[in-house]
């Protein structure tokens, strides 16, 4: 396992573009803390994010993992190209000839995905913890360490998403096209949902089916956190609309995302096994 990770590390770290993107990604993750510094001061309208309660425990776990998940696109580029480049440089062929088995090849990529996800999760945990300790109105241990399922959900979300990237990289073999395909797929999911709800079934059934789609299942892991904010809730109350919704991380959501991860990794292996290089 260590050997496989070392192999991937040599491949990635010596590639300048990958190195820059990886560093940029982790720098951006750290920059989430800068949200704390955002202050609007428009005369009567004063706005300071840190004072709106977004850094309150345990809400911060939800908010930060939701925001941080957007940056995953940087790593997606790295992961898609680390797979697709093996095809365009034909190094995949040489790797196999040199004695890497096809499973080891896929497994080394998957291990890299796990490591990236784990480091990201650790990063976001530490950054959130520090921000929370600085700004949170509550600091009892019990509250600090509640709602940690968002951290778990974040990890699974990244693993599932990066596994999809791996799969697309090996399916399409070209990084630019694979990324295009990823965007296309996100639109297709919405179109299928639209058509289902509009013509075929009720909107409720369509929403249930939609939650089984790969990208949607990853998105569902961490729902948007904004309507949980007390400020927003207050506005809702004033407008007499109910903004309460189910934001919790459910175990079936985790299961769906894990199932897709397994499908993508096995699919990548099956593709590699079937193809002549």
């Amino acid at each position: 396992m260590i050997r496989l990770l070392q192999i991937e590390f040599i491949k990635l770290w010596n590639n300048r573009a990958s190195k820059v993107l990886i560093i940029a990604y982790f720098t951006l993750l750290t920059f989430i803390s800068l949200i704390a510094a955002i202050k609007f001061d428009l005369g009567p309208l004063k706005f300071h994010f840190a004072e709106m309660g977004i850094f309150d425990f345990p809400y911060i776990w939800h908010f930060n993992t939701y925001i941080a998940a957007f940056f995953k696109l940087f790593l997606a580029v790295v992961i898609v190209s680390m797979m697709a480049n093996e095809y365009s440089n034909k190094t995949i062929k040489q790797n196999l000839i040199d004695g890497l088995s096809k499973w080891e090849f896929i497994y080394s990529k998957f291990l890299t995905v796990l490591v990236f996800s784990a480091i990201s999760t650790l990063f976001i945990f530490v950054v959130s913890l520090i921000l929370g300790l600085l700004y949170s109105s509550y600091n009892e241990l019990g509250i600090i360490f509640s709602d940690l399922e968002f951290i778990l959900a974040y990890f699974i979300k990244l693993v599932a998403f990066f596994s999809l990237c791996l799969f697309l990289g090996i399916l399409v073999k070209r990084s630019a096209f694979a990324l295009g395909f990823l965007i296309l797929w996100s639109i297709v999911e919405q179109i299928i949902f639209g058509v289902l709800g509009w013509k075929i079934t009720s909107w409720e059934t369509a929403t249930t089916i939609k939650s089984l789609f790969p990208l949607e299942s990853m998105a569902n892991l961490i729902d948007q956190p904004f309507s949980r904010l007390s400020v927003v809730q207050n506005i809702g109350d004033q407008l007499e609309t109910d903004l309460k919704f189910d934001y919790a991380v459910h175990s079936y959501e985790i299961l769906i995302a894990l199932a897709w991860t397994a499908i993508f990794i096995y699919g990548s292996y099956a593709l590699l096994k079937k193809r002549d290089l």
């Binding site: 040599i10 590639n15 300048r16 440089n89 190094t91 062929k93 040199d98 004695g99 890497l100 088995s101």
Partner: peptide, 21 residues
């Protein structure tokens, strides 16, 4: 096969290496 290939040295057609390394 893949373990046997560790005891084999082989070059097929074009040399394939990582261009940036």
């Amino acid at each position: 096969t893949h373990n046997a290939l560790k005891k084999v040295g082989a070059i097929i057609e074009r040399p394939n290496f990582y261009p940036y390394m």
